[in-house]
């Protein structure tokens, strides 16, 4: 992407996100969230985050699937730590540590 289109994208994201944040604060009393959208929003984090995580772990660099990919066990251990600790820092340390350990062995 060229620098110009990159900044165009960032600007569009900035304006769009600002509009989402301002929406009801500005239009109070004139806007209602549709019930369906309200219910659908509850599943956005689980769905989008899983769709971001899984391909990035299974196809690092967008390449082919490989069973010997050390990112798969590293992500499994990180998921366990995330579940037990609910802490971003611990999850990062566990995942990166396992990846580096496996890379050093292999």
């Amino acid at each position: 992407m060229t620098d110009l289109s990159l900044w165009g994208l960032f600007l569009a994201v900035g304006l769009g996100t600002f509009a989402l944040r301002l929406s009801f604060i500005e239009l109070y009393g004139r806007l209602r969230i549709p019930v369906m959208l309200h219910r659908a929003l509850a599943y956005v984090p689980a769905s989008v985050l899983a769709a971001l995580v899984l391909p990035a772990v299974i196809f690092p660099g967008g390449g082919e699937f490989a069973l010997a990919n050390p990112r798969i066990p590293a992500a499994a251990i990180a998921a366990l730590v995330a579940w037990k600790s609910r802490n971003i820092l611990f999850t990062l340390v566990a995942g990166m540590g396992t990846l580096w350990g496996l890379q050093a062995l292999g």
């Binding site: 985050l49 990035a56 998921a79 995330a82 999850t91």
Partner: peptide
């Protein structure tokens, strides 16, 4: 391999979701 930090952060956000 610090690019792996991105899915790890998402993973840390995904589990409590």
């Amino acid at each position: 391999s610090l690019d792996f930090a991105i899915p790890l952060v998402f993973l840390a956000l995904l589990v409590p979701a």
